[in-house]
Design a binder for these strands. Structure first.
Lengths: 343, 343
DNA sequence: TTGTAAGCGTTATCAT
DNA sequence: ATGATAACGCTTACAA
């Protein structure tokens, strides 16, 4: 049996399609009894409305899409939960759309906006170097959440919520310096990265400079491009290489907690220990940084606040209360077992 | 300016809509030059076809959806990558749809099937206790991947790929027994769970029995319902409670690696160590089990093979080569630093 | 090779 | 309160 349509239901009920539509969509102009009767028939016949037809006809829907670059990142888990909760609280529905690493998030967004008649979009993660012309095709409000934006963009033209990656990274590197470390290695993004990876590296560089330390290029290590970025495996491989290079260092700053975990394992396997032989610091404030052994010193981003503020700004945009906004949250340096003064 | 439609493009190009459609969809019956001209106009005007309209009109599309319960689970990351790769290799497109913990995956599937004219569905994760009547509304082939199915279902009526959770869990518990442990605690799913959590618990029970060990109810701990299931935090909280209960044990089997990580941290915080004071074992074979300190003994599921076989079966179903299939892969017991004989 | 026109399954407009 | 009917933007017979 082919799939039921609204017409079949109308026929079975002996009413017009409009009435059925009214019943489905909770319209006021319908008597309780006809509605109940129609709903009963719908249940019995397992009728499910076709969303494509609905979206096509509807001029606007109350839905927000969250587009994530790299859904794999545990850092986003908590944020997604908050997004979902907040969006539902506003009586909007919520679409989570994953964007592939080599897919253009703006193109996905443009397509989705048309397909689903979106009211707003949240971009989560990734870099953001798009032609202005492309951005302009997005006719609904959007907010960049924890995304590093290239500085060439006019801040008047978009909205964002994040931490100050430069400052927070500086904070961590400065802490390591103040601990007495003078040879501090870093695992960061390839220099081609224009986003948070770059900002975190710049913070490290500045902290070294301010502490009178010279930058040793041999201690600046970048993630392997062929391995999942910011992953434990990447941290492991890069650290192994660093250790084998024989270059001397006493502390290692990995720009994500996952990288730090991989780094620790590489150190253990070389017969050394953390923090006695090497201090290791991470970034993000993931659960694993707390549960790891030793627990890992990190920069904890206030994920829930970031997510809440993202939604708040998005709805202010939707309701035309504002034209743009940028919110920067402070992150917290959590000092744990993995970092001590050099021996 | 309102959004462009195919009619606008046709008008601008001075051709009919059919021709534009042909250009968009790479149809053969169109001259190279008109096609090039049309594509140029499309680019210039930023025309993007409306997917809802396409899906509505199309009778069938070449797309496969993967529905995941709990996208948060790192165990699925690798699988998703494989799914995507394999599906693209078959020239099909791929939709990843997250299903909320308290959402009914079958309902989502039914809706999506109509909306996107799916060719097939993969269900990933979660339990699976659905009314047969509901399942029957799914008119396209589907495969359950790493899902525990309630035994009441007729295996003739569905397809699945997974490991034998009972057997693999038995393997781990048996290994701990053979190591000499006689007081083996377990962290598992609440008894209401009918799925993998139950199977893994049953394997543990049987192993104890076969090794002449009596089951101590006080050593059977279940995850907290209000905390994310199978998470590090859950393992941490439950283990803390276990340690504080004063009940004696020498080994702890956590039915997921994340639980095991949380368990280890709870043990460290109580001033004890792993594996000297307590052996800890996990399940799944996540990266973190290897990178953790100590590295964690686990049951490694062959995720890539499971994912590949899932797609293979799905396409065999689509091509009507088979009516159903069940594939069970062996998993591997990886003995690492976290388990030693009791002292 | 190209164009015209008939749906796809809804919702919205306008009568009744 | 209810129903006929015209869109929504696209693909696809069928004609030319």
């Amino acid at each position: 049996m082919a799939s039921m349509t609204i017409i079949d239901i109308a026929r079975i009920c002996g009413v017009g399609v409009t009435t059925v539509s009214r019943a489905i969509n909770n319209h006021p102009d319908i008597s309780e009894e006809t509605k109940a009767m129609i709903m009963k028939v719908i249940k019995e016949n397992h009728y499910v409305p076709n969303n494509s037809a609905r979206n096509l006809k509807r001029s606007a829907s109350k839905t927000i899409a969250v587009l994530i670059k790299g859904i794999t990142n545990p850092f986003f888990n908590r944020m997604i939960q908050v997004f979902e909760k907040e969006i539902q609280r506003k009586k909007y529905s919520f679409i989570l759309q994953r964007v592939d690493e080599n897919q253009d998030e703006i193109e996905v967004a443009i397509e989705l906006e048309k397909e689903k008649r979106l009211k707003g979009i949240v971009f989560l993660g990734g870099y953001f170097a798009h032609a202005k012309e492309k951005l302009e095709q997005l006719t609904v409000p959007y907010v960049l959440s924890t995304i590093g934006m290239t500085p060439e963009y006019d801040p008047q033209e978009y909205s964002s919520v994040s931490v100050d990656d430069f400052k927070e990274s500086y904070k961590m590197a400065d802490y390591l310096c103040k601990l007495g470390h003078r040879k501090i290695a870093i695992i960061t993004a390839p220099m081609s990265d224009v986003s948070i990876g770059k900002l975190r590296y710049e913070g490290y560089k500045k902290a070294l400079e301010d502490n009178g330390l010279e930058l040793n290029e041999n201690l600046v290590r970048t993630m392997k491009e062929h391995i999942q970025s910011y992953s434990m495996e990447n941290g492991y491989v890069v650290t192994k290489e660093l250790l084998e290079s024989g270059e001397d260092f006493t502390a290692l700053f990995a720009v994500s907690d996952s990288l730090a975990v991989g780094a620790c394992r590489a150190i253990f396997e070389s017969g050394k220990s953390v923090p006695q032989d090497y201090s290791v610091a991470g970034y993000d404030g993931l659960d694993i940084a707390y549960y790891y052994n030793p627990s890992i010193t990190t920069i904890q981003q206030p994920v829930e606040e970031i997510a809440e503020e993202t939604i708040k700004i998005l709805f202010d945009l939707i309701n035309k209360k504002i034209t743009h906004a940028h919110k920067i949250f402070p992150a917290e340096l959590l000092i744990r077992e993995s970092t001590i003064p050099p021996s």
